[in-house]
Amino acid sequence: MEYNLEKFKSGLNKLKIELSEQQIQQFLTYYEMLVEKNKVMNLTAITEFEDVVEKHFLDSLSLIQQIELHQNLKVLDLGTGAGFPGIPLKIAFPELEIVLMDSLNKRINFLNEVIDALKLEHITAVHGRAEEMARKPEYREQFDLCVSRAVANLASLNEYCLPFVIVGGNFISYKSGEVEAEVEQSKKAVFLLGGKIKDVKKFRLVETDAERSFIQIQKVKKTPKTYPRKAGTPSKNPIQ
């Protein structure tokens, strides 16, 4: 199938990302697998090629505006869903070592199919809830960077994500629209969990008028053993 790659290439150019033909092909294969699998399970409401390019691919890759990705970082994509932002980041920045984590096993099976089809290395998809996985020594405080596009309150996201990050590492939350109130309300959680708010970057998503934000939280000390609390609690009862 022929795709109009103009918007994708223009967006990549604005993000100063250079991809080889093989990497572009990996994105196209990923798109085709996503749309195909979406017929039998709910992965995304966005299926038109140009919309996926804008709202999933370029949105995922916008992270390059916030942090240097051409380096050997160990990255956790928590609540990865259909693989965003982790798979686009892995395609574009192969030196990253990535773990995709999601609580729905059907999604993990799909992600493993994608990893195999694209012949991606140093990337794994694991099934589990953040509250349980963050207590396992192989995951707790093991990552230089945790990223999440999950739709959740920032205070809850901090409780899910910060326990995975090494001291000196970062958690970056992808958010859309206004974030000031949410950032303010999450300050206590950030402090209790061993983090500090390093930066809030607002920008327009390339090739669109959509408002986006990155909230970067640096891990400055170890997360107390009491966090995360048991399954479901961080969402139902965020630290206030």
Rank of each mutant, 00 (worst) to 15 (best):
P137V: 09
G81D: 00
K196Q: 13
K37Y: 13
A150G: 06
K201P: 01
K7R: 14
F84E: 01
P228Y: 13
S103Q: 08
L100T: 01
A231S: 14
V75C: 01
P94A: 00
Y31L: 10
N72W: 02
K136M: 12
S173W: 02
S176W: 02
F84S: 01
E178L: 06
R140K: 15
L28D: 12
M41D: 06
D209N: 15
Q142F: 01
K90I: 09
K106H: 12
Q66D: 11
E97N: 13
P234R: 11
L73H: 01
K37T: 14
Q22V: 02
A134P: 08
V35F: 04
P163E: 10
K39H: 07
P137R: 08
E50C: 07
T29I: 13
Q240G: 09
K225V: 14
K230I: 08
V183N: 11
N105R: 06
E50A: 10
V200S: 11
Q66R: 11
Q216F: 01
L96G: 03
L69T: 04
K219L: 03
A82I: 11
E121T: 15
A45W: 02
L63Y: 00
L192E: 14
M1V: 12
L205E: 10
S156C: 12
E48P: 05
G81A: 13
A92I: 08
F8Q: 05
K219Q: 04
N42F: 15
I24C: 05
N237M: 03
K225P: 03
D209H: 12
A150L: 03
N158I: 03
F110D: 00
K119N: 15
V151E: 03
V52I: 15
N109R: 12
A150N: 01
L78C: 02
V147E: 02
Y174G: 04
R135E: 12
E32W: 00
N112M: 14
Q65T: 14
A45M: 04
G195D: 03
K74F: 01
P94W: 03
N38L: 11
G195K: 00
P137D: 11
E180N: 13
G11H: 03
P163Y: 08
Q22D: 15
V200Q: 12
G128E: 03
S173E: 06
L96Y: 10
N4T: 05
Q22P: 02
I98D: 01
P88M: 14
K14D: 11
V190C: 12
L205W: 06
E138D: 15
P224G: 10
L43Y: 07
L15G: 10
H56I: 00
R135L: 15
K16N: 15
I172D: 00
N158L: 09
I123P: 00
L89A: 05
F57E: 02
V151D: 02
S60K: 00
K222E: 10
F57V: 05
K90S: 00
D199F: 06
N4S: 14
E182P: 05
I91K: 06
L157F: 07
E50L: 07
E36R: 06
A134C: 06
A134Y: 08
V126P: 01
A117W: 00
V165Y: 04
E6H: 10
T124H: 08
L193D: 06
S176N: 10
V35N: 04
F84G: 01
V190G: 04
K74C: 04
I24Y: 05
H70W: 02
K37N: 11
L73Q: 01
N38S: 13
L5A: 08
Y174F: 15
I239Q: 06
D116R: 10
